[in-house]
Each structure stands twice: as structure tokens, then as C-alpha cells.
Simulated scan of single mutants.
Amino acid sequence: MFDTLYARVKTLAQSRHAEASLAAVAFAESSFFPIPPDVLLAPMALAHPGKAWRFALVATLASVLGGVLGYAIGAALYDTLGQWLVNLYGYGAKMDALKATYAEWGWLVILVKGLTPIPFKLVTVTSGLLGYNFPLFVALSVLTRGARFFLVAGALNWFGDPVRDAMERNFAAVLAAFVAVTAAGFVIAVKVF
């Protein structure tokens, strides 16, 4: 099963639709989708190390555009879609505390949470809901998402061969670690955010 999944991800990463798929996942993850774009960025950067920086740029731009959608969901659709997302991730009862945190530390929340496995959609929807300064939100999103994706692309570009070999030998373990990190991000988000 894992070999088949790895083969599919690897095939997609090497296809002519790879960048469009990466952009779609990065866009969706910043507003409503639970799977981070790293799942495509990593195999794409490993398959084409010379394009790793381009892939990071695609992921960054699409993620920021998706973040703008998340902001709009929080600002304009909170009573319907935004509230559903906030409750889905367990933040319904924490909104007052979150408003106070954003009033003082919103810039830091955006920067830190954009780099971590904590779902970025929570930051984008909350920023819109709380009416955080939109130009500053976009600038901080570019900075934090760019840092994350360029760090991933750079690490895979520099250490590509050992990482590729480890993924091919132990894809089940790599996938399990990725799922564990993503799950930990959701748990941390519920406890800390």
C-alpha cells in the first residue's frame, strides 16, 4: 500500500501537472484543506533539485493567496463557514482569549504559526475574523510562508540524495512521521492557539 502511495506521489511530483497540483494544495491548505503542501513540495524538490527554489516560490505565492481567501472567510463568512471551521478545530470557546492575544501579539502569532505544523488556515480565518490589518497580514504571510517553504526546498536541495534514499527505503516510516507531525500541529493548535 505504501509503495503504491509513494509511487503515485512521486509520479505526480514528476508530472507536468506538478506545479499546478502544488499550487492547488498550498492554496487550499491556507484556507480550508487539512494536508500541508510539504507532501508535494518534498518529492518535487527531490525529483528536480534545480527547480527546488521555483517550487518554494509557487508554494509561497499560492499559500498567501489561499491565506487571503482564509482571511475573507473569517471577515465575511464567519457566521457560516468561518464559525464551522473554528469549531471544527476546537476554538469556539477560545475566541475571547484569542482576540486579546491578537490585539497585542497578532504579528508574532502569524509569523510563528506560519512556520510550524500548526494549520495555517486557523491563522488566516482568525486574522480575518478579528479584522487584523490586511496589508500587514499579507506581508507577514509572505515572510513566514516563504521562510517555511524555502527552508524545506533548501534543505532538500542540499541533502537531497540521502533524503531521497531514506524515503525510498522507509516510505512508511517517513509517512508515519509526517502524519505524526501534522497531528501534533493540530493538537498543539488546540492547546496553545
Results as ranks from 00 to 15, higher is better:
A153R: 09
A177R: 00
F33H: 08
G82R: 03
V9G: 00
G106I: 03
L175I: 03
P162H: 13
F137T: 10
F149I: 11
F193G: 13
P36Q: 12
L40Y: 08
A13G: 13
S15Q: 08
M1Y: 07
F149W: 08
V39I: 15
M95T: 10
A93G: 03
L151I: 15
E19K: 03
E168L: 04
K191C: 03
F120N: 08
A13N: 06
R8F: 11
V9Q: 00
L85Q: 04
A23H: 12
V163R: 02
A172S: 11
I188W: 11
S141E: 13
I35C: 06
L88K: 10
A72C: 09
A7H: 06
W84Q: 12
W84N: 10
E29M: 08
Y102A: 14
A177P: 00
I118V: 15
G106A: 13
E104S: 11
V152W: 04
G185W: 09
P34V: 09
L57Y: 09
L85Y: 10
S127N: 07
V109M: 12
D3Y: 05
V192S: 06
F32C: 12
Y6R: 15
A72S: 14
A28H: 01
A56G: 13
E104R: 05
V25Y: 09
L85A: 08
L111F: 11
V152L: 14
Y6E: 12
A75L: 14
F150S: 06
